[in-house]
Simulated scan of single mutants.
Amino acid sequence: MVLIFLYYSSGKLHLRTSVQKSQAALDSLHSVGRLVVSEYDKQGFVTKLDRKLFLKPAPMFLDPNFKRLSKISIYPPPFGVRTQEKIIDHILSATNSYSLGSELDSLSCKKCIIIGNGGILFNKSLGAKIDQYDVIVRLNEAPVAGFEKDVGSKTTMRITYPEGAIQKPERYEKSSLFVFSAFKPMDFKWLRHMVYQDKLRSMEGFWKSVARIVPRDPEDMRILNPYFIQEAAFRFIGLPHNKGLMGRGNIPTLGTVAITMALHNCDEVAVAGFGYDMNTPRAPLHYYEKLKMSAIKESWTHNISKEKEFLRKLVTGGVIQDLTNGI
């Protein structure tokens, strides 16, 4: 379970996320020969990507009106918010901020990059290029300090969950958003403790140790819209539905969830540091530690091979470009 998030790639998406920009996106796609027609298998999973899949806006973060989002109201975590409405209301009343911020929200063309944690990033010297993006997304506890040459120095948001969160307060960036992604009901209780700075008295319900403090003000905390977990799992990757409950091999990795979020909310999307090659067992698994590729073990929650199929569809369809060539 330690090696849950193993995808690291890069790419660009020239798609508009609002109805007003749809025609411009279509014209652009026509001009570069990237139009793709959707195709589905017998179970309704996407087998060939259509740019229209990403044109429908979906809010990055939950706001006080989250109950209007019908697609997440029917499922409990990780695919929705059912059974967690009251605690989410309580958390949102304290955070009181629900967007990227006025400066980024006002951009007419938003360029975003998702930074994976893969060893494929090591010694690539992509740091300066990464820092040129408007929105820089990092995952879990992957460090920045000491690795700027390869991964950049800026962070807009860090998406994580309790077991993946940075545990040493001094390692947190001072200006980034803390973006919380819930995979089980217990996760929301943890977030409430972090937001209200209450002492976390028990680790029961977590599969490993979790952070006991998040050194960010409530207004710098967000709740990621669980629709992106749901959409990535059931519509794009084709994971088992299991009646909308967490089950064996039906949870997308956080990296793929972040990519799905970006496809709906950014005009251009890049990713870096996705992918691993089991044919090189001595290669570094992560860019920041000595753990080798051979340490990868089968995950109970994820289906790595099916996720790679999805990411390859994005690449071959011209929707994203893999800068580190790991997909």
Rank of each mutant, 00 (worst) to 15 (best):
Y161G: 01
F147E: 02
G317C: 01
S73Q: 15
R51G: 10
R51P: 15
A58G: 00
Q132N: 14
G118Q: 12
R235T: 11
K306W: 04
Y98A: 04
N325S: 13
R312Q: 12
I88A: 02
N65Q: 14
I259E: 02
I296C: 11
L6D: 11
R138F: 04
P57N: 07
G33H: 06
V214M: 05
R235Y: 11
K71C: 05
S28T: 13
I115Q: 03
S125R: 13
E204N: 10
D50A: 07
Y276H: 09
M203H: 08
Y8D: 12
M293P: 01
F5W: 09
Q20D: 13
I327S: 12
K149G: 11
A233F: 03
A58T: 14
K184H: 13
S153T: 11
S28L: 09
K308Y: 12
Q132A: 08
D187Q: 02
S10E: 06
E148W: 00
T47A: 06
K184Q: 14
M60W: 12
M186D: 14
E231S: 13
T256F: 07
P226E: 08
V144C: 06
A58L: 09
D220F: 09
C112T: 15
F236R: 12
Y227C: 02
V137E: 00
T301S: 12
T256L: 13
S22T: 12
K243Y: 07
V319R: 01
W207C: 04
F45S: 10
L6Y: 04
A270D: 05
T324D: 14
P143I: 04
P215D: 08
D89W: 00
L6P: 03
L49M: 11
I130P: 00
D131C: 03
Y161Q: 05
T155E: 15
A262V: 01
L291D: 12
T155Q: 14
E173A: 10
R171E: 14
Y7C: 02
R222C: 04
P59Q: 07
K129G: 08
Q43L: 15
E141C: 13
F274R: 06
S108Y: 06
R51E: 14
L107K: 15
V151C: 06
S102I: 10
K154T: 09
D27M: 09
G44A: 08
S99F: 02
K199G: 10
A211C: 10
Y227P: 00
V319Y: 15
E141T: 06
M1T: 12
